[in-house]
Design a protein around this nucleic acid. Structure first.
Lengths: 192, 192
DNA sequence: CGTCTATTTGAATGTACTCAAAAGCGGTGG
DNA sequence: CCACCGCTTTTGAGTACATTCAAATAGACG
């Protein structure tokens, strides 16, 4: 288990002693997941917070009409789960699947609660993680308000260039909040 | 200065000793603001995190085309600011104004940073605050995806009943992300 | 190679917007 | 106290953006 990467990620925000590192590592679990595997299924139980060591994932919701919406992508060094389900122990509204073969480190809810008690520095770490996550959501909302679908498509291409090869246009459309047909039409207009 | 309320709010999540309370109170500032006063102006500097003791506020963005979008309302016991501007010390994308006469407690960025050092429990407190804020944003996004504008209007009325008397329909429309004309049309359809 | 899914294309439709004008409403000053 | 001003709300016509549905084509993969 390559624990270097997650430790480095954590030490961007807090510094840990050797014992603290050891303790932290001891509570982690890890798994390697093939591509297109669903690791969290909407409606079932969500007890894990995932850290992406390598690979990539997407979180999506399927609503009552069967419409699929991608809520977020996660790449190396990102944390991902259905946070509402995880924190408030509710049934998840999201499903999460791997896009490529991925190596994941995860921690479960109880263990994280204990970790906050054992090593209070992690309060700081996750305070910063949540703070950033909240800010990112807000900026995303603002961006959605002030851009056309075409502009948002271009920004997406710009932001996740590596992901483009891995994901379908349908998934991009579902992230942008439009139908695949409409995204196709946008691309057609651009190239003409 | 009535410090009881903010202390109670904080002690929902962490418990403070008498000295800690005293210290915390000593770093707060407070102000009473008339209705329809802008306390943060898009583009200017944002150095304060506000806690609403009483009254209500709204945060909104005006984009390049002049379109106004209300991002959030804050009522008693809520925290509000342009979080990106506050945390990352960027020019704010939001303006914040009082809807009614409001009593606000605030803390500035530097002081909050110090507070985290002086009383690390506040890391926990704000970890929980940001965690909830992030979850709320995600749920809002999911709700937006799966509801019609009419359903979202009804939910809004249901959620902020007290606010309805205080705010204009134009502001509700700007929160729902539609034009005032369209909201008017929705209401007409409902009553017929 | 065949099958399954993604993508493209086009026509018809729906949802929400723009613009303009009229009506309603609240506050202010004479 | 009422008349006027400015802003909000309503109404309607015309338009734009995006969806649905269906069918054809292209690609991916066992």
């Amino acid at each position: 288990m390559n624990t270097n990467q997650i430790l480095q990620n954590i030490q961007k925000h807090i510094s840990l002693s050797e014992e603290e590192k050891k303790y932290f590592i001891s509570v982690l679990e890890m798994s390697s997941v093939n591509k297109r595997q669903i690791i969290l299924r909407q409606g079932q139980r969500c007890q894990k917070l995932y850290f992406v060591e390598s690979g990539s994932l997407r979180a999506y919701n399927i609503n009552d009409d069967g419409k699929e919406s991608t809520i977020m992508f996660a790449i190396q060094d990102w944390w991902i789960t259905d946070m509402n389900a995880f924190i408030n122990q509710k049934p998840p509204l999201l499903s999460i699947e791997t896009i490529q073969e991925s190596s994941l480190v995860y921690i479960d809810f109880k263990t994280l609660e204990d970790l906050y008690i054992e090593i209070p520095k992690f309060e700081r770490f996750f305070r910063i993680i949540f703070q950033n996550a909240y800010i990112r959501e807000q900026l995303k909302v603002l961006d959605n308000i002030s851009s056309t679908t075409e502009q948002r498509y271009l920004k997406f291409v710009d932001r996740y260039p590596k992901m483009l090869e891995k994901i379908t246009q349908k998934q991009i459309a579902s992230y942008l909040g439009v139908t695949p047909e409409f995204l196709s039409a946008i691309k057609k207009n651009r190239s003409s």
